[in-house]
Design a protein around this nucleic acid. Structure first.
Length: 198
DNA sequence: CGTTTTTGACCTGCGC
DNA sequence: GCGCAGGTCAAAAACG
């Protein structure tokens, strides 16, 4: 089962990198999943100047193209403190600060993708100094309702799936079906990431 | 009435 | 030094 998960993760990572290559025509380092190349060059230079500084985590969230709220349900409570229209993207960028703890340094920026308005990009900056109300990437969490397709953060999402007993059962069933040849076309491992091979 | 959102002003860093 | 762009502040408005 872990082997199957590993293969699936590898496929999804390569798929994500292909998408980013097409969108931005740049090569992405293989250990930076979802890190957008349009990341401001001046800031990138600063980060490279301080190699110990953590690079911000970027999460892609599928949403309705007409949804202008830029709200991402990720298990934390965020307070919006600013909004800006940036030069390289007509969609406004919203700035959020964690409101679950007064002294929490965690922040995030949320902006729609330049090329696909149905995808919003959340850039997380800083770490929470408190717990989370619910697992942000667990399939049963509020992040996975009808109007919000799961965040495409492969490693954490896969990790949460492994912990999910329901998923384990489904996965085991799918593996059994594959082995017995009852289901060739679809592996039954649809991770609902909107990144299927179709 | 407390909390959150909105939005224009302000601050800061960078390139020229 | 100046202008530009991104990020933050804070007062007013909106909301529950």
């Amino acid at each position: 089962m872990l082997e199957v998960m590993k293969i699936k993760c590898t496929n999804l990572e390569s798929h994500l990198q292909e998408i980013n290559k097409v969108e931005h025509k740049e090569i992405i380092s293989s250990n930076q999943i979802g890190l957008l190349p349009n990341f401001d060059t001046s800031k990138r230079a600063r980060l490279e100047h301080f190699p110990t500084a953590k690079k911000p985590l970027q999460v892609f969230v599928k949403t309705h193209p007409n949804d202008e709220s830029l709200m991402v349900k990720d298990g934390y409570q965020w307070r919006k403190y600013g909004q800006k229209v940036t030069k390289d993207n007509a969609s406004p960028r919203a700035y959020f600060r964690c409101s679950m703890a007064p002294s929490c340094p965690a922040k995030k920026k949320v902006q729609k993708s330049l090329h696909d308005k149905s995808i919003i990009v959340a850039t997380y900056d800083g770490e929470h100094n408190h717990g989370v109300s619910n697992d942000p990437f667990k399939p049963s969490s509020s992040a996975l309702n009808d109007s919000s397709i799961p965040n495409i953060k492969i490693e954490e999402y896969a990790s949460s799936l492994i912990k999910d007993p329901d998923f384990t059962a489904v996965l085991a069933n799918a593996v059994a079906k594959t082995i017995t040849g009852q289901e060739h076309k679809r592996l039954g491992l649809n991770l609902n990431l909107n990144l299927s091979e179709e």
